[in-house]
């Protein structure tokens, strides 16, 4: 069972009855050489704290754009995006970076670890940027996160010395570094074999159980079923959004 270090408790973030993440009538239009391309059309989505949401859809359906709206990586053409009571669509780039560092942990398909830093340094980097923990505690926390990911032996290796699955677990540890309430993962298992993908999903389940809110984008419908809720997106619209029954990791 994954227990997060340095957290006061494992409870979900306080939301005072509001959804933790809320998208209101979000449109996203890309201007291209062949004309305007609507990536998202009138999207409304509420996600409560502690939910584990899978977003599925075909390639080009708007899954990643939807995640980019939540992370603030991209901005809506119309509509509002609220995360943890913050109007993300109104934040400037600089404030956004700091806010994102403190509130969101992002896991990428291609891991995106900095190749020149060791594994433990990659995990310390968000803490350094956001000063989330006292300086003398950052390394200890990074090592404990690696311990939880069963990667403590690899702490001082460069990412290139690790397998894809190991790199993705380092990326998850980095996403957890500042102890954000929300984890966003874009095709986190897209580059992994099925066994390793299974293990990564296991980690997500444990994090949800710890109180984290997780949103993942995936192609894999079987994997998606392991989330508590599945949203299907097609041509920029959410065409289906329903609970997935009692989740394996969720306590009855």
């Amino acid at each position: 069972m994954l227990t997060l270090p340095f957290t006061k408790n494992g409870k979900p973030a306080e939301n005072n009855g509001y959804p933790l993440i809320s998208l209101r009538e979000v449109d996203k239009l890309y201007k291209t050489a062949v004309g305007d391309f609507p990536a998202l059309v009138n999207v409304d989505l509420d996600i409560k704290a502690g939910e584990f949401v899978s977003v599925i859809g075909k390639s080009g359906s708007g899954k990643t754009t939807l995640l980019n709206m939540i992370t603030g990586i991209d901005r809506p053409s119309e509509g509002e995006v609220w995360v943890n009571q913050t109007a993300v669509h109104e934040l400037g780039e600089n404030k956004m970076a700091r806010w994102r560092g403190n509130n969101l942990g992002i896991v990428f398909q291609f891991f995106q670890l900095l190749p020149m830093l060791s594994v433990v340094e990659n995990i310390m980097l968000p803490m350094d940027f956001c000063s989330a923990f006292p300086k003398n505690e950052r390394k200890e926390r990074a090592l404990e996160l690696l311990e939880e990911m069963e990667l403590a032996d690899h702490a001082y290796k460069l990412p290139s010395a690790l397998s894809g699955g190991q790199q993705q677990r380092v990326a998850i540890a980095r996403a957890l570094a500042n102890n954000p309430p929300v984890i966003i993962a874009d095709e986190p298992t897209g580059n992994l074999d099925s066994k390793t993908a299974e293990r990564v999903f296991g980690l997500f389940n444990e994090l949800v159980a710890q109180g984290k809110t997780i949103i993942i984008v995936t192609h894999d419908r079987e994997m998606a079923k392991r989330a508590s809720r599945v949203a299907l997106i097609s041509d920029g619209e959410i065409v289906s959004d329903k609970p997935n029954g009692v989740h394996k990791g969720e306590k009855a």
């Binding site: 970076a97 995106q112 980097l125 956001c130």
Partner: peptide, 16 residues
């Protein structure tokens, strides 16, 4: 630029 994007994604600000 990609590394800068990653650093920003994990909380790095422009001035940092």
């Amino acid at each position: 630029s990609k590394q800068i994007g990653i650093m920003k994604a994990i909380g790095g600000q422009t001035h940092q």
